[in-house]
Design a protein around this nucleic acid. Structure first.
Lengths: 239, 239
DNA sequence: CGTAGGTTTGAGGTTGGTCAACAGGTGTGG
DNA sequence: CCACACCTGTTGACCAACCTCAAACCTACG
């Protein structure tokens, strides 16, 4: 069940069989959330953290005028709200952008891990700081990149993250998001997102049809995005 | 020396005297970095994390065309690169925006803490996830707020964060940043930042002269910013 | 067959960027 | 003491990027 969590973590550092067993025993009750439904709600005080097993989910906030900003996208193997283990109260909601299979880890059990297994604790901590690294990259992208470069960057990021959990084949991956949702992730209007996407298509660097993204020219795409995947911290080292 | 770190942490949860003593013994070698100098450099592999004792520092990245984006601002009591304890390699630099007094905590010692004091470990972990919460709020601000609202929001945030460490008096605080640096934090041009600031001044909500910021009308400012400080996680509870 | 959700396109207006110039303050060397 | 460079803040003019509104089109589905 937690194969993809293991993949994401063990890409960064080796897990012992004991640690894997601990994670397996702690992650429980898998179920499916339909597309469009909230997995976690702003203001709630969850007593467990949610692991995404399958599907794509997004953290988001809505402003008073109805504008929505997606602050993070999650792929299988990600905890969508591990930070709530320490923050206690959710300061944003998490929505299922596609049907999502999820499971839960009780904060009581996570607390137990933090008391008994320092290395596994650091690995969980690591996954929250990688979230942070991705947030920073998004800030740079929204703040200083052109929209074309930003969109290219997002595609590069998702390509790499989905590769880690084995969900890319032949430069192609399923991205179950509407253009309106992608626009909310980039902080642009739907209309402008669409026009920006046209440009990438015309450049011949990506195909994006029926929610299947195919990278036709990785070199050019990464160049447009000025993409440097180091922030995803894929290197395997003692943590 | 670490008074402000204690302030920030114990605002969120009680620290035992033992824990305070541990922190005190781990944070060493305070020194001053002159304004404008880098405290940590992108690509480096620090073996210790840096605690900011005094001054203001910023995490930032520079793109190929020379544009800079500040991804985080740090006030006294913040660790500027605690995440590097787990990420190992810095994916951004940290610069002193004013003369900064800093001290260091060796990763070896932090690792020791993670092995021996679960609660203190969680408190350090907490401080990295609060960083993350601030990042998310910045993403929302850059992506979906008007520049006026975004600037107001930044002022509100700094007001609250500086209050926690006792650096605000009578709605006034010292903010040792040039307008160009603030512009890099908001992801706008210097010219536009200046014009936006004029508007807030004309509205009579802030005074901002000689790097001293005075909030003249908190109510209106918070309203313009649509500010809700919950994301700063100031509530005191067991973590 | 009508409706709903998603994509695409065009037109026109606003926000915010770039370029350029100037003002005030500070430090430096002649 | 002045002349000068330099840094920061300020302002105006012009232009590009991006937004909003609006409509058309497509497909899936009851």
């Amino acid at each position: 069940m937690i194969d993809r969590l293991i993949l994401t973590l063990s890409t960064r550092d080796a897990l012992t069989t004991d640690e894997i067993a601990t994670l397996e025993s702690v992650v429980k009750r898998d179920r499916v959330v339909p597309s469009g439904e909230d997995i976690v709600i702003e203001g709630s005080r969850p007593t467990e953290s949610t692991l995404l097993l399958d599907g794509v989910a997004a953290r988001y906030r809505v402003l008073e005028d109805g504008k929505r900003q997606i602050t993070a996208l999650h792929v299988p193997g990600d905890f969508v709200d591990l930070h709530a283990f320490l923050l206690k109260t959710m300061d944003h909601s998490v929505v299922a952008l596609s049907p999502c299979r999820i499971a839960s880890a009780a904060h009581r059990d996570l607390c137990e891990i933090s008391a008994t297994n320092p290395h596994l604790t650091r690995m969980l901590w690591l996954s929250t700081v990688i979230d942070g690294a991705i947030h920073r990259e998004w800030i740079v992208a929204i703040g200083r990149r052109s929209k074309k470069s930003h969109l290219a960057h997002l595609i590069c990021e998702l390509y790499v993250r989905l590769t880690v959990v084995g969900m890319v084949s032949e430069m192609s991956f399923h991205l179950p998001m509407s253009q309106a949702e992608v626009a909310d992730a980039l902080g642009v209007s739907l209309v402008h997102l669409n026009k920006t996407l046209q440009i990438l298509r015309l450049d011949g660097v990506v195909r994006w049809v029926d929610r299947i993204v195919t990278i036709l020219n990785w070199e050019r795409l990464a160049e447009i995005a000025e993409f440097d995947g180091r922030y995803l911290n894929l290197s395997h080292e003692p943590r």
